[in-house]
Design a protein around this nucleic acid. Structure first.
Lengths: 190, 190, 190, 190
DNA sequence: CATGAATGAGTATTCATTCAT
DNA sequence: TATGAATGAATACTCATTCAT
């Protein structure tokens, strides 16, 4: 269908929305978003029918980028440990490089603004680092939801990110320690 | 004095605020909060000068309760593993018993509404499960911020909580698996 | 009738009201006034049934003081010119000594808060400097409202006061020049 | 551009503000003002960011009109006496024709709502009737602020206006007597 | 009589959305 | 299609007044 004219403006709006949420929370006015995107107030609504739709699409847009960064480095021929570490490092690096986006996504994620549909798509998106399989095999997570592994990955990574962002000088140490901690969960032979 | 300001109303407002945030996010109207607390709109502002102050105090109030629950079970004579498990279980149990409060605290925690002062007090509050000491001794976290351990505890517990809350029938399994995973980080002999 | 207990509190409230209006205009909250008077919020309403009544009584109270100061110096045995000058000087001196009260009275005077009754009493209060008689006799004001003279006195004095207050160092010069100007109106032989 | 902001609406808001202040004082609600202007409540704030700004701009707008009326009749070739009388008459006529505006301006003028900037501009605006020069030359006002003359003009005119407005049938008599009184100050040969 | 907690109507301002240009 | 002026419902906070203590 007639996707509105400028794909560029769409992207600008998406990014502006993320930036605005990072700065002012989900209460950030649409007028602020359109201003940051360099378009008129009304234009925003030609690309997204409501603020909520904009936020949902923004969430997936950013999450997709995060997943791209995290998944791009996956080499199926490598063993789980290596793959996991590559992904971990990419995740942390991406997070450090895009603090506003991380903040926006985390903030939005706590909210009921995200629709069930968005949550469904989100689950689809996270790259298969091998944790689901590891989850299934692990006597620790036997029988539990296979997304539990990914959730741990993200939970620990986000905590790590917070400390790394606060002490940039030692970001690498946090990155490494965080991963080692994470690895112990999945890669320790009982 | 004419009538002392009612400690009960204060508490009702605090709890109403938590409930309201859980239901409608930080944009929840003060009118909704006062209604839920069973007081007049203006009364809220005799107890808390602004919405932000209310939210900050609410955050600490709830966090304090959470810490009380988590820390009450600590028995210094027990070894770290046991202490950690007791606290872990209390945390998860408390979280399952108060889903709205957990949601409110998490939501508020992502926000810039919390002042630096609130954050400072928060750090003071979390009970000493022994993770800071473990952090310092661990070769994993050597030299890093000693709050990293507590952060991991909370990050993993919150992730666990989310899954447990979603599948209440297996809450105990999640609780146990979550703890085992956490324990591997701190209690694995390298 | 049972005038409420403390005449002192009544006066404090009156003065506090004047001060509050000077500082914040007629929108000054009753709570501010009671605080400035050193009494509880509710106490104000035991002395004055409404804010408007308080303001009306305050207006007359202050105006009465002003008139006392202006009229006290009148010596009926002196000729008009001297009497007028004495009064003029007292008015200006009193105004310079009580800037907040002048401000409050002027501010309130422009407002519809003052009742017709208050206005009536006010007219009664201004001391008879002799201007009414001078008015009647003057071919200038023949047949016009005899209060016109007092109004001129006050109008010119207030303007003088504004300049004198702004340049306190030359207050005396303004006082003298203002009076001379005023005198030309009434005391010039056509 | 979508639609230019309407200069007409701006003016309507300005006039509505004056009318509202005349009727209800500076506490007049913005909702009342927008209603009187025939626009939506929110529209007011697209033209003036705050009520205070609106009031300041209104003050200057009205004062400018008053000055235009008063100054338009000035003919530099005429002697001071004639010029002053022309201006005086215009002032009184304008005031009688726009009682609400006069009331609004006087009310606002007593208030701290007017900024220092507004006061500065105001001083700039009053037409040069020749009183400043007369002030300088007069032995009466020698060395004093040259604005003293204008202040007297306005003070006496406003007092005159009040009486004239109250007895419209004799407005002309007040107008003439007021001017004669004023003239004695400046135009009496010592 | 004095107090100050409680009230709820009232107010300035914001903001998502619409629509005339 | 893009714009931004216009809208009015929604919201945080204030304040005169009441009344239980």
């Amino acid at each position: 269908m007639a996707r509105p004219k400028s794909e560029e403006k769409r992207t600008q709006l998406l990014h502006a929305a993320a930036e605005a949420i990072a700065q002012r929370g989900v209460g950030a006015p649409t007028a602020m978003i359109s201003a940051m995107a360099g378009v008129a107030e009304g234009t925003l609504f030609r690309y997204f029918p409501t603020k909520e739709v904009l936020f949902n699409e923004m969430y997936l847009h950013i999450f997709r980028q995060l997943c791209d960064a995290t998944g791009a480095v996956l080499d199926p021929s490598q063993p789980l440990l290596q793959r996991a570490e590559m992904s971990w490092n990419s995740y942390i690096d991406w997070g450090l490089a895009h603090p506003a986006w991380i903040k926006a996504v985390n903030q939005l994620g706590m909210t009921d603004i995200l629709t069930e549909e968005t949550r469904d798509i989100e689950r689809t998106l996270f790259p298969d680092v091998g944790l689901m399989e590891a989850c299934e095999k692990s006597e620790l997570f036997e029988g539990l939801n296979i997304a539990f592994g990914d959730a741990m990955f993200i939970a620990i990574a986000d905590a790590t990110l917070r400390f790394a962002a606060q002490e940039p000088a030692r970001a690498d140490e946090y990155k490494l320690s965080g991963f080692k901690a994470f690895a112990r969960i999945f890669l320790t032979s009982a």
